[in-house]
Design a binder for these strands. Structure first.
Length: 588
RNA sequence: GACCCCGUAGCUCAGCCGGAUAGAGCACCAGCCUUCUAAGCUGGGGGUCGGAGGUUCGAAUCCUCCCGGGGUCGCCA
């Protein structure tokens, strides 16, 4: 029921209406928010309306608050209105309002929390984009999961989302891949290749590539100059590496709709050249010199005139080169053409997910997007910080030279998709993440993955158990929900039960805020809190049997409480779904 | 040297486009198992929000400077 407004959105409208009635229709109400107060003792909902509007109105916040509060008191959904602190308006809704929201959640089911906030706006989100030169590591996995969850969240909140993978199949690295694969090809034909030379990829994962090449070409490529075999070997190598990457992503349930090849930007048509020409005509490109970098990082710096993009005109720190000394394009030049292609496909809302080591690259690409779109398109770059792999608190040793680094697939195979996905989302994207292989599979409350999944499973165990007392209660989900449709929700009067409903009702608002901020981790934290309140209510029934969900001789109360449980199940299931984590019906 | 990210309880981290006495988990202390899964719950102690200024009725949040950790800085992608 995406068309109906959730309770917080509804109350925001009413508060804004009340404010407009007091201040007139011209008042700017955009900064007014309605949110759950920090302290539940203050009420169910609080608004800052009086405080943000007081200045323009030329009134004291408290006075304005009193006036708006008076207008709100007429609202039939509101029980009490108080003014507190510097001018907060605290509201307590009638229980019926919350119970109505619970009913809406149950009846909306999987679509509860869906919104039209995005208005169908096209969003392109590019993530993973790992080089097709070998298996992915856990850092790639974090970007993959982050991008995937963000895409799901944006789609759920009303954006028209395209998930995209940029294949870096054009640079020097894929030539290295080709040479490495060629070596394995010779090996597959029976040659002794000895140690893999420095500068080539040593991993065993190229052996199947060599074998496949030997099968396809026989000895035809053997003892031939590089120019004769490299393009074909490179193409086979890239294809097989992409297959490998796609499989690894599939194991994490990460999918993309568009795989965009960097190579396709230069052949058959050279779109990079075309883009440079276009920008040059617009005066955004010139031939000039750059000051040398202020670090020792560039040893063979040579001062020369080169083709430069005027990125400083669009917010960057220095102008950026588009061609290397050998005349080929820089990665940046291709990236400009790539982002132009996105804009040309109708995207004005671009999101790129990169590793933190690419942070220094943000301004120039944003500058390019600005220049290409005349300021119409915006690029938000989300950096994912590195992942530190631990096992029971001890760092997992990884030596890339020895080739024994732990791949993403190793981790997924060891702890499972759900643990990887949840833990990677249980942290802000720009914070370094400790990933403990031992902890994430622990079946205890110390493991947030388990804790939230267990909450969902525990709720379902209530549905199973109730049939021992009331055998006619349906076991199948659809029939259960239909049965709960007529539950007498006003029997839910316990304060903790109502508090649980209020927590549940924050879900749609949490999703909208997370979507606007491009921060899917907020969903994970919210789910943890909701699960926690549910576990608490469960345990309360131990000491206080009258608070149990199943009450022996009271089918009506039992039904009402099962409706509450159904609401929790709905939200936990929905939120886990957005994160791409399974919501199990029982823990095994 | 410049730019970017981070700095919140002993530890790991939240803090919702500035808001009401700064939160959670772990760890520590004290409790709760004759059946809705103790795979859990309840209570307690513990913080100059890195530092100093500034803007504001109000700053962990915005601005400036400084300190500490990480990253990046034309021909890697």
């Amino acid at each position: 029921m995406a068309s109906e407004k959730h309770l917080f959105a509804l109350m925001l409208e009413r508060v804004q209406a009340a404010a407009a009635a007091v201040l007139g229709a011209t008042a700017d109400l955009s900064r007014v928010v309605v949110e759950p107060p920090r302290d539940a003792a203050h009420g169910d909902m609080a608004t800052n309306a009086a405080m943000v509007l007081a200045k323009d109105a030329g009134v004291k916040p408290r006075e304005l608050a009193d006036t708006i509060a008076q207008a709100l008191r007429a609202d039939p959904m509101i029980e009490t209105v108080d003014v507190a602190g510097p001018g907060f308006i605290n509201m307590r809704l009638k229980p019926a309002a919350w119970l109505g929201e619970l009913r809406a959640a149950i009846e909306s089911g999987a679509s509860y929390g869906e919104s039209r906030m995005g208005n169908g706006q096209k969003v392109n989100i590019e993530y993973v984009s790992a080089n097709p030169t070998g298996p992915m590591h856990v850092g790639h996995g974090r970007g993959a999961i982050f991008g995937d969850a963000l895409a799901s969240l944006l789609a759920f909140t009303g954006f028209d989302v395209t998930r995209e993978y940029y294949i870096n199949d054009a640079g020097a690295q894929v030539d290295v891949l080709a040479r490495s694969a060629y070596l394995r090809y010779r090996e597959a034909l029976g040659e002794t290749i000895g140690a893999i030379p420095d500068g080539l990829y040593p991993g065993d994962y190229l052996k199947p590539v060599g074998a496949a090449l030997a099968k396809e070409f026989g000895a035809k490529l053997q003892n031939k100059p590089e120019s004769e075999w490299l393009p074909a070997v490179r193409a086979r190598g890239i294809a097989m590496m992409m297959d490998l990457i796609r499989e690894d992503l599939a194991a994490l349930n990460v999918k993309h709709e568009v795989y965009f090849s960097e190579r396709s930007l230069t052949a058959p048509q050279d779109q990079v050249a075309a883009t440079i020409d276009l920008l040059r005509k617009q005066g955004k490109i010139y031939e000039g010199r750059l000051p040398p970098p202020k670090s020792g990082a560039v040893e063979d710096w040579e001062d020369r005139e080169q083709t430069l993009f005027r990125s400083t005109d669009f917010g960057d720190d220095v102008d950026r080169p588009l061609k290397k000394s050998d005349g080929t394009y820089t990665y940046f030049a291709a990236d400009i053409a790539y982002h132009k292609a996105k804009i040309d496909r109708g995207f004005n809302d671009l999101i790129d997910v990169w590793g933190a080591d690419h942070g220094g690259y943000i301004k120039r690409v944003q500058a390019a997007v600005k220049a290409l779109s005349g300021g119409k398109a915006a690029l938000d770059v989300k950096l994912v910080q590195l992942v530190k792999l631990l096992r029971a608190g001890e760092p997992v040793k990884m030596s890339k030279r020895a080739g024994d680094f732990v791949t993403l697939r190793d981790v997924v195979d060891e702890v499972g998709k759900d643990a990887v996905r949840f833990m990677m989302l249980y942290r802000k994207n720009d914070a370094v993440l400790d990933f403990d292989l031992a902890k994430v599979i622990e079946q205890s409350k110390d493991n947030p993955v388990f804790y939230v999944q267990y909450g969902h499973a525990r709720a379902h165990s209530v549905f199973r158990n109730v049939r021992e007392t009331f055998p006619d209660f349906p076991s199948e989900a659809k029939a259960r929900i239909a049965r709960l449709h007529d539950a007498k929700l006003d029997l839910l009067t316990d304060e903790a039960e109502l508090s649980l409903i209020r927590k549940m009702a924050v879900y749609p608002r949490t999703l909208e805020a997370a979507a606007l901020a491009h921060e899917p981790h907020r969903i994970a934290f919210y789910l943890y809190e909701l699960a926690s309140e549910f576990h608490a209510q469960w345990t309360r029934g131990k000491d206080l049997p009258h608070l149990r969900f199943i009450i022996q001789n009271n089918p009506e109360l039992t039904e009402a409480r099962l409706a509450l449980v159904q609401g929790i199940v709905t939200v936990l299931g929905s939120g886990l779904g957005l994160l791409g984590v399974d919501a199990p019906v029982e823990m095994r």
